[in-house]
Design a protein around this nucleic acid. Sequence first.
DNA 1: TCGCTATCTTGTCAACGTAAAGATAAGGTT
DNA 2: AACCTTATCTTTACGTTGACAAGATAGCGA
Lengths: 189, 189
Amino acid sequence: MRQIKQTAYHHGNLRRAIIDAALAAITEFGPAGWSLRELARRAGVSHAAPAHHFGDKTGLLTAVAAEGFEVFADTLERAAEDVLDVGVAYVRFATGHRPYFEVMFRPELYRVDDPSLKAARERAAHVLVVSAGRLSPSPAQDRLTTIAAWSLAHGFASLWLSGALPETARDDPEALARSVIQLFIGMAR
Amino acid sequence: MRQIKQTAYHHGNLRRAIIDAALAAITEFGPAGWSLRELARRAGVSHAAPAHHFGDKTGLLTAVAAEGFEVFADTLERAAEDVLDVGVAYVRFATGHRPYFEVMFRPELYRVDDPSLKAARERAAHVLVVSAGRLSPSPAQDRLTTIAAWSLAHGFASLWLSGALPETARDDPEALARSVIQLFIGMAR
DNA sequence: TCGCTATCTTGTCAACGTAAAGATAAGGTT
DNA sequence: AACCTTATCTTTACGTTGACAAGATAGCGA
């Protein structure tokens, strides 16, 4: 039986604990309404401990964004067979993993050239391009159709997250997104 | 001939100067990458001068958002006759008045219940609902069509601003948006 | 001229991000 | 077992920030 020392000098899994604390803080206060020192306090370590794992605040947000793009790419790949499913998965990720999403598409918050982040982002983009391409009436329209489909899903997710949609649309974002995307797909055919 | 005193105790138009400095700072560093004290320095006043006009930082961002929604509503109203024009105007506002847009749809940054802000926001929403409604095939589809059209325009604007769209889409956002929205309108008919 | 109010300054405080230097633990090597 | 190397975390320190309080200055109507 493993005993948890109250006064352990080494945390054991600080990196994970700080990222989780950051996700919780972003959920509650947005990507800028908290402090590194507060996360350290929550994790029970000194205020400078996180620096060893992330360098600075931007480093922490880079780790959050990278992890987010990983989960995002996995989510989209699982739905890749059906265009509607991909669109719905896009929205479900945004609403179900809000703190990730809120960092990922705000590149001024993190280091966009991070290698693992770039790889996951391209993995996600590939799913979008392939599945949206299937909606296109002709190869000449591939590009516009992809941008339109991506904009639709991303716009819905952003508007829902920002609370801009009317009251009646707040309840079940996934169901509403499915209807909206279905309408779009129906028009395309 | 009006002489500008170097050591004037009163600035004359501090409120406007601070808002303009904020817009410039947001353009350069995003809505969180600057300080109130820096804006005060740029305006040549003491570090506590802005507080008199805005209360706190949230107050300043509320003023920015309110002004943004005013310009936004004016822009949309001028295009209200044609659905395509409204969509293009939406994107043109986002790309042409980037600092406003980046604050407006981030409600955690400002006081959403500000009266003048609310009024302008509802004015803008009204144009969207009316013009998107004209795209709807039947009254039963009004709601979904409106949300779809709004999502499309908003999503395109957000993706373009975040730099998420591919390199080839960076040059002329307005022209590309026009093509994308035209595709959407064509599908709806 | 007087007084009222808006505007701006000065001084102060706790909290923040970041860096440097030191302490502690863990794990491999001999 | 003794040693050394490296990773991890603490302590201390510095300059900056947002916010507040108190005081100075200016404009403006009575």
